[in-house]
């Protein structure tokens, strides 16, 4: 310990001796350095902010016309646009409409209706969902988000369950 202390002590006393002559230069260097650093900061701040992609404001869509009555046959399905994401409209063998988000809960592939399986299937990693949207086989961890289906005249209206 004593060995270590001596050189640092000597350095300190040397610094103290030089302080009178160095202080002005040091002060100027600090002022100049922080000025340059601030300038760089002021330039970088807008640049970094510019690069952050702005959020695209989007009207929150809670319902959409997914298709027309008569468009689907029993045991078939179609993909429709729901806002920026795909949805899937299915008519089961009994002729009832079902609608889900078509985004697979595994890795966000778009699912499809397989009439041979009589349920929804994701081609990417062989995920299976039944007609209640429940994940029944394969890697998907959660059921598909289910939507409400209403028929208004000729239109099949799909809306989010709020």
């Amino acid at each position: 310990m004593a060995k270590k202390e001596t050189p640092t002590g000597a350095q300190e006393s040397k610094k103290a001796g030089d302080q009178i002559t160095l202080s002005r230069r040091k002060l100027i260097n600090i002022l100049l350095g922080s000025g340059i650093a601030t300038t760089f900061g002021a330039v970088l701040f807008p640049i970094i902010n510019f690069l952050i992609p702005p959020r695209i404001r989007e009207a929150v869509q809670s319902s959409v016309v997914a298709g027309k009555v008569g468009e689907l046959q029993p045991n078939s399905g179609k993909i429709f646009k729901f806002g920026r994401k795909p949805g899937i409209l299915v008519m089961n063998q009994q002729g009832e409409y079902r609608a889900f988000s078509a985004v697979c809960t595994h890795l966000e592939c778009t699912v499809q209706y397989r009439s041979d399986f009589k349920h929804i299937w994701c081609a990417c990693h062989n995920g299976h969902f039944d007609l209640a949207g429940k994940n029944i086989s394969g890697p998907p961890p959660r059921p598909l988000e289910a939507f409400k289906v209403d028929i208004k005249g000729e239109d099949i209206i799909v809306s989010k369950n709020l």
Partner: peptide, 9 residues
Amino acid sequence: TEVRFGWLI
């Protein structure tokens, strides 16, 4: 209009 500091850049 949308990008932050876009008008300035």
